[in-house]
Design a protein around this nucleic acid. Structure first.
Length: 477
DNA sequence: CTATGGCACGGATT
DNA sequence: AATCCGTGCCATAG
């Protein structure tokens, strides 16, 4: 079986195109949607042979259709059993504003509601709460957002522009900030965090110190000066670690991008990198067994095809252009084909992945199963590197709303780490790493003491002697 | 002396 | 071939 994996690579014997084909497929597979959009937009702009057609809508469910194929959602749900997840390419492109002429900024008055970019997405949510006048102000504000979803323009300026008091602008702004990408329109990351936190605190209890940490200790927080932050808040380092963890897990300083997990990027590594997920997993709740639906986001608005006009013209191309045109045609064709292949691979992979990690997706970290990319590749009869590439740099939104990198599906130790966290959370007195290691092996995980230490630091949990004061404090309460 | 973090090695994964 | 991960050993802090 494993031998089959190589056939993909042996195919390219005669056609010289095939190697280009391969290179193209591989690089496309590696890209996440953000990069993909850029690539496609670039091609569209440069290659006259490439054409973008609007999607049609499925008559039954109103989802946008991918080419003229039958609606994937409807056909899948009728034909497949409950045990197999529904996986399809979804043109759910709400945040990618793709149009031919992306250089031209659309003047804000003319924003059509169909263009699902961030401003109109937000506007649609709040339109009903505002009267027409306020609505146009809201639109104004929304078009001033920077790429992170923050409003860098001073309120006063907007107020003067519309000849209204600043207070009114504030009111509208606060409505905006409370709509979907929570915190959009905040003036800086700090404010965005506060808005998000406030909303969270309405539904669950939140440590009041977190408010303080953000409002008073934002500088320390974003510069990772945890000791001085602890001092400022009059609390232990451990507590600060927890706060930091909470913020990292639940809040997002840049509302226009969504959470993406920790990436040790450059200088201020505590601030995470955010973007929109490439895949959504949602959950249809049937009485007994929840049905998982996987949508692989197709990041552009519409479908690519060979420009029919160009195709016609090709046969009568002027001799001096013919070479150029031909190569354009080839390139366009290649791109489309490769994109199709990318989608296919992604679908196949997610399908398997969702079956394997069903528990994890539905019930959370503790149920994560250690799956390796190699194994998955074997089952799918594709090369390991194919899986590697499709996993790298992409993120998934779980039914819980959490956004995680796909690579987390392949985390070898996630379940153990959550187990460990639980032990620590329930401990009466701080346990040393050695003790924890013992406890874990009682539960069936044989982990060296040294490894426990590693996991701890991964999770931002402090060593036993530092946890001490914290626990004592909690008990006093 | 105990509990941890640092460095580095070897095997597994990508 | 490059990278990641679990571990063992050793130095250091308490």
């Amino acid at each position: 079986m494993t031998q089959q994996t190589h056939i993909t690579y042996q195919k390219h014997t005669h056609k010289p195109m095939t190697t280009a084909h391969l290179a193209q497929t591989m690089s496309l597979l590696e890209m996440n949607n953000e990069e993909l959009v850029e690539k496609i937009e670039g091609e569209l702009a440069n290659n006259p042979a490439l054409d973008l057609v609007e999607d049609q809508q499925c008559p039954t469910c109103n989802r946008k259709l991918y080419r003229n194929s039958p609606c994937p959602f409807c056909s899948f749900s009728s034909s497949m059993g409950f045990d197999s997840p529904i996986v399809f390419i979804s043109p759910r492109n709400e945040f990618y504003s793709t149009s031919y002429s992306h250089e031209e900024k659309i003047p804000y008055e003319e924003l059509s509601p169909e263009v699902e970019d961030l401003p109109s997405y937000v506007l649609n949510q709040i339109r009903s709460d505002l009267d027409p006048k306020e609505c146009s102000i809201a639109t104004h504000i929304l078009t001033r957002l920077d790429s992170d979803g923050l409003l860098r323009t001073p309120l006063l300026e907007i107020a003067q522009y519309h000849h209204i008091p600043v207070a009114s602008v504030k009111r509208i702004l606060s409505i905006i900030q409370r709509s979907d990408p929570l915190g959009v329109g905040a003036k800086d990351p700090q404010e965005a965090l506060l808005v998000q936190l406030e909303t969270i605190s309405k539904t669950q209890s939140v440590d009041p110190l977190i408010f303080q940490a953000i409002s008073k200790g934002f500088f320390e927080l974003s510069h990772q000066q945890y000791k001085s932050l602890a001092k400022r808040l009059n609390t232990s380092i451990n507590h600060v670690e927890k706060i930091k963890k909470f913020i990292g897990d639940n809040l997002n300083p840049y509302p226009a991008r969504t959470h993406w997990g920790t990436i040790r990027h450059h200088t201020d590594s505590h601030l995470h990198r955010y973007h929109k997920p490439d895949v959504y997993i949602t959950c249809l709740k049937n009485e007994d067994e929840p049905q998982l639906i996987v949508e692989i986001v197709w990041p552009i608005k519409g479908t690519l095809r060979i420009n029919p006009a160009f195709h016609k013209a090709l046969s009568q191309a002027p001799p001096e252009k013919i070479e150029q045109w031909n190569s354009d045609y080839q390139k366009a064709h290649l791109l489309i084909k490769c994109l199709g292949q990318r989608n296919h691979t992604l679908v196949k992979m997610m399908q398997k992945l969702v079956i394997k990690q069903r528990e994890f997706i539905l019930k959370g970290n503790a149920y994560s199963k250690p799956i390796t990319r190699a194994k998955l590749a074997e089952e799918l009869n594709v090369h390991e590197s194919t899986i590697s590439r499709s996993v790298s740099g992409k993120s998934v939104q779980l039914p819980s709303g959490q956004i995680i990198p796909i690579s987390l599906f392949f985390d070898r130790s996630l379940h153990i780490r959550t187990e460990m966290k639980e032990i620590i959370a329930n401990e009466t007195k701080p346990l040393s790493d050695t003790k924890i290691s013992e406890l874990l092996s009682n539960r069936g995980y044989n982990i060296a003491r040294r490894t426990v230490a590693k996991y701890r630091s991964m999770e931002g949990i402090l060593p036993a002697h530092l946890r001490n004061r914290q626990k004592v404090n909690e008990i006093k309460k």
